[in-house]
Amino acid sequence: MYDHSSDTDLRHLQLRLGGDLALRHLVEAGLDVLPMPGGGRTLARWRVLAEVAAHDLSLVKLFEGHTDALVIQAELGGASIAAAGARWATWCAEPPDARVMAEDEEGGGEDIRLSGTKAWCSGAAAVTHAVVSCWNRDGKPCLAMVEMDQPGVLVTGEGWHAVGMAASASVNVRFDRARARWLGQPGDYTQRPGFWQGGAGIAACWFGGAWGIARKVRGLMGRAPDAHRLAHLGAIDAALTPAAALLRETAAWIDRHPRDDARQVALRARLAVEQAANEVMSHAGRALGAGPLCRDPTFAQAMADLPVFLRQSHAERDLAALGSLAAPDDGEGPDSWKL
C-alpha cells in the first residue's frame, strides 16, 4: 500500500496540478502513495499535502482524508475491503447530534451493520469507501470500513451551506443497516501514534493554503511595488518562514519518536500555522486591495476557503491544552523555549 523507499516526486505532482482536478485523478496517477508518518519521511509526506493545498484547499481536504484512511488501515492491520484505486474518506467527527451505531452480524466475525447519521462527510459523493467512527453496543468508540455504493447508504445534501470549502461537499450521510467491517479494536483511533501525527499533518495543509495565497500575492505585486505592498510582503515572509521551520522541526521530531505521543508538538505546530495563516490572509488582502478578491477566481476562492478550513482547529481549547502541557513547574519550561 505504501512505498517507504522513495519520496513522491513533487515535480510530477506539480505537473499534474493544473486545470480541473479531482481526487480520482490523484489516485489514478499514484500520487496518493505517500511515506507513512513517523517512517523517516514525514516531511516528504507533508510537502505533498502542502503542494496540493496550495493548488486547491477543497481538494486537499479530500486527499488528506483519503491518505489518512490508508494510514489508519495500515496501522491497525485492517484487511482492506476495497481494491486498488479506491477513493477513501476518513469521517470521525462526533458532534452530539449525529452518531452512528454498529451492530454485529449474526454469527459474529468482522462483519457489522451501521445505522445513524454521520456529519461532516467531506467528499461523500466522490469517494468509494470510508473509514467511519461509530459506537458498539457497549458504548465504546470504534472504527469501521464501509463501501459507499450499497443499499443502506444515503449521501444527503444536508449539513453544508458555507461558501468557503464548498467543493469539499462536507454533507451528512445516513446509514441504514449498511454493511461494514470492524477496523481495529475499540478506542484504537485516538490511542494510536498516528492520531496526533495526522493532526500535525493537517497543519501542513493549512500551511499549504497560506503558502498558495502568499505565492499569489508575490505574483500580483507588479514590477515596481510601492513601499506599502512591500511591507505587507515582508509581513507575509515573517509569518510563513517560522511556520515552515516549525513544521520541519515537528516532522523531524515525529521521525525520531515514531511511537511516542505527538500531542504537544502537533498542537504547537497547528496553533503556530493557524496564526501564520491568519497573518498571511490579513496582509494579502491589504496588499492587493479588492481587485483580485473580485476578479481573480483562484485567489478569491483560496481566501474564502482557508478561514473555513482553519476552523478545524479547536482555537482556545487547543491553546488551553497546549498550556496545560507547558504548565508543570519542573524547571525552566519546555525545551522548545530554549535556543
Rank of each mutant, 00 (worst) to 15 (best):
D97S: 10
A300P: 12
Q191Y: 02
L34S: 04
A321I: 01
L114I: 12
A245I: 00
A84K: 11
T156W: 00
L23G: 04
E94N: 11
Q301Y: 00
T8P: 03
D176G: 02
R87L: 15
M101A: 14
R113T: 08
G152C: 11
G201M: 08
D138R: 15
A69D: 02
P186E: 06
V48C: 10
K338G: 02
S133K: 07
A69T: 05
G187D: 03
D56I: 07
A124I: 08
L220C: 08
T42I: 06
L57V: 10
T156V: 06
D296N: 15
S336V: 14
A321W: 03
R270V: 11
R87K: 15
V153E: 06
A130P: 10
E64P: 00
D9F: 11
D7H: 04
D188K: 11
S336A: 15
M148W: 08
G285I: 03
Y189P: 06
L31A: 04
G65P: 00
K216R: 15
E94C: 05
D32Y: 04
S168A: 15
A119H: 10
G234A: 10
W182F: 02
A50E: 06
A102F: 02
S313G: 15
S170Q: 06
G164L: 02
A315I: 00
G152F: 09
W46H: 04
V52A: 00
T42V: 04
N172H: 14
R270I: 10
P193A: 01
G108F: 12
F63E: 07
V265G: 00
A93Q: 13
C92S: 12
M145F: 02
H161Y: 05
P96L: 11
L10Y: 06
